[in-house]
Design a binder for these strands. Structure first.
Length: 280
DNA sequence: AAACAAACCTGTGCGC
DNA sequence: TGCGCACAGGTTTGTT
């Protein structure tokens, strides 16, 4: 579910409402959510610590703790991080709860129906063995910036469809199925075009559109689809779904050219939508 | 190298 | 109304 703009929105919420508040108490309901380590390890490493920073790389949230440890959270398909009063009813599928200091008493909740998501707490010195995927991430276009020359090199190195390449987290971190389609549409590039055949002019457009689309989506608080799975820390929906041009619009007339229709096919294992007229 | 499927889970929407 | 199936924002792993 959540891609870079949604995760960034959650990160900002954590920075505002979680950082600086001591974690008094930790509960782990479903151990699967902390499967990389264990219930005991997560409780022991979090209890009594205070988060000092909330960072993001691609779709990965990383919270620094005053103990020196880090907490990595990945939402995968259905994860949510919510903060609410301890007196409110916990949503179904609340698997990890961090009770925070302060009045009114609030708690941070990790909620995840499909349980693909994870909470991992670890010593950064052993990050390479506990969270090896972090070291494999490519540049994050928003957090670190994306060098156009590097994008050109990455694309020229593969014959895969450009859509599949954009979703490869080792090439660029943070783009998922929604934003991949929206970026390619705005850049007017056909998603099936082999990445190495994307022209220099198209790569310049693609680079600009990656930044435009992601920044606009962040400004809109991300995309909340009909199932309302994605909401921010306060439970608020995003609004970028109202500006999707191709994602979820198969069969509709293209909103940009007004002539073509949005078509869809599976590319790189993911349903992909594009305009047959604007995208070449 | 890359295409593909399956795996991990649960919920929802659709056709019948 | 109920049932069964297809499908879903992600990532890893294994097979052609």
């Amino acid at each position: 579910m959540p891609e870079l703009p949604e995760v960034e929105t959650v990160r900002r919420g954590l920075e505002e409402r979680f950082v600086g508040r001591r974690i008094e108490h930790v509960e782990v309901g479903r151990e699967r959510s902390v499967r990389r380590t264990s219930r005991e390890e997560v409780i022991a490493r979090l209890t009594g610590t205070t988060p000092t920073a909330a960072r993001r790389r691609g779709k990965y949230l990383i919270v620094d703790l005053d103990s020196g440890d880090q907490m990595m959270i990945h939402l995968r398909m259905s994860g949510q991080v919510l903060i609410d009063s301890v007196t409110t009813r916990r949503p179904a599928h609340t698997h990890v709860v961090l009770t925070l200091t302060g009045r009114p008493a609030e708690e941070l909740r990790f909620v995840d129906p499909r349980t693909f998501g994870e909470v991992v707490v670890y010593d950064p010195d052993v990050a390479d063995s506990v969270v090896p995927e972090l070291a494999r991430l490519g540049p994050d276009p928003i957090a670190e910036g994306l060098d156009p020359a590097q994008l050109r090199r990455s694309l020229s190195s593969t014959a895969r469809a450009v859509k599949a390449a954009l979703l490869d987290q080792a090439l660029v971190a943070g783009i998922g199925n929604i934003y991949g389609d929206e970026i390619l549409h705005r850049a007017r590039i056909h998603p099936k075009r082999p990445a190495r055949n994307v022209s220099p002019k198209q790569i310049r457009r693609l680079h600009a559109c990656i930044h435009e689309v992601l920044n606009e989506a962040i400004a809109a608080g991300g995309s909340t689809l009909d199932d309302a799975q994605y909401v921010d820390l306060m439970g608020e929906a995003g609004s970028f779904q109202d500006r999707h041009r191709v994602y979820g619009r198969a069969g509709e007339r293209c909103l940009s050219c007004g002539r073509g229709h949005v078509v869809s096919a599976v590319i790189g294992g993911r349903t992909t939508s594009w305009c047959g007229v604007c995208q070449r």
